[in-house]
Nucleic acid binder design. Structure first.
Ligand code: ZN
Ligand code: ZN
Ligand code: ZN
Ligand code: ZN
Lengths: 131, 131
DNA sequence: AGCAACATGAGAATGATTGTCAACTCGGCA
DNA sequence: TGCCGAGTTGACAATCATTCTCATGTTGCT
């Protein structure tokens, strides 16, 4: 039980706009790209608010966040089950993938070395068929 | 076959110093921390050079690089075979792990979706037996 | 309505990383 | 040994994603 739990987010105009924006695309995008998207749509949301909202949403696992190979955080709406991603390095096209065997393997490895409270990150990068 | 191959690094004083520094610790450290370490040892190496050297070494897989939760790149010397890490979230203790099955799985997943030029990241975090 | 906690935004600040470029070093080779 | 072109370095500026500040606007609730 971590003590990092927070109050539920208030459904402000800005947060609704960010959530809607997230629903409108399928690839991983940076906070700035999402902010630009909102701008184009006419939704006036401050950049800092976009950052804050995405952060909170990813903390509560309502969106996926991962880091591109050059360290930039990118976000994408996600399903509610544990999964990983196959991401196109060129266009960001993403495929969610699951692998029970991998989950078992990571747990076994951790157990073998006596590690507890285990978590893991696994992302696959490549260039999709269109590139 | 990527075209990113480069000439072998010249064994300059600075590069030797960075390599020696890397040999002196076992956990993942940032470029700046390694630069500080060199400073304390009296090795005068510019920060930009430390960055450049670590970058080239990680490109050629002579050191491991991974990103901390907040996106900072950290480095560590490593064995020459492809592997992943089991990292203690409390003390940074690191265990290198290998898993042919996982390698096969990631390749299969990528192939199944027509992705080429594939790479992947996989790190396991937990608390080691001492914590 | 009225209050307190929460949320926002504009802009400044931070901080890791990269770019610039003139000076320096290395490895051949005559 | 001396010279040359390619590779390297370092001081510093520049980038650029992300965070901070804090005055002002909102929300949930009574
Ligand atoms: Zn693509
Ligand atoms: Zn998993
Ligand atoms: Zn530990
Ligand atoms: Zn692997």
């Amino acid at each position: 039980m971590t003590s990092t739990d927070r109050q539920p987010l208030r459904p402000t105009r800005q947060r609704i706009a960010v959530t809607e924006a997230l629903a409108s695309f399928d690839d991983f995008r940076s906070a700035q790209e999402i902010h630009d998207l909102l701008d184009r749509r006419g939704a006036k949301v401050g950049l800092a608010t976009v950052y804050r909202t995405l952060q909170r949403l990813s903390e509560s696992h309502e969106v996926d966040m991962l880091r591109t190979e050059d360290g930039e955080a990118v976000y994408r709406r996600c399903s509610d089950t544990h999964h990983h991603h196959l991401v196109c390095r060129e266009c960001g096209a993403t495929v969610e993938i699951e692998g029970p065997a991998v989950e078992r393997w990571t747990n076994a490895m951790a157990a073998e070395h006596g590690f507890a409270d285990v978590s893991h990150t696994l992302e696959i990068f490549g260039t999709c068929p269109r590139h």
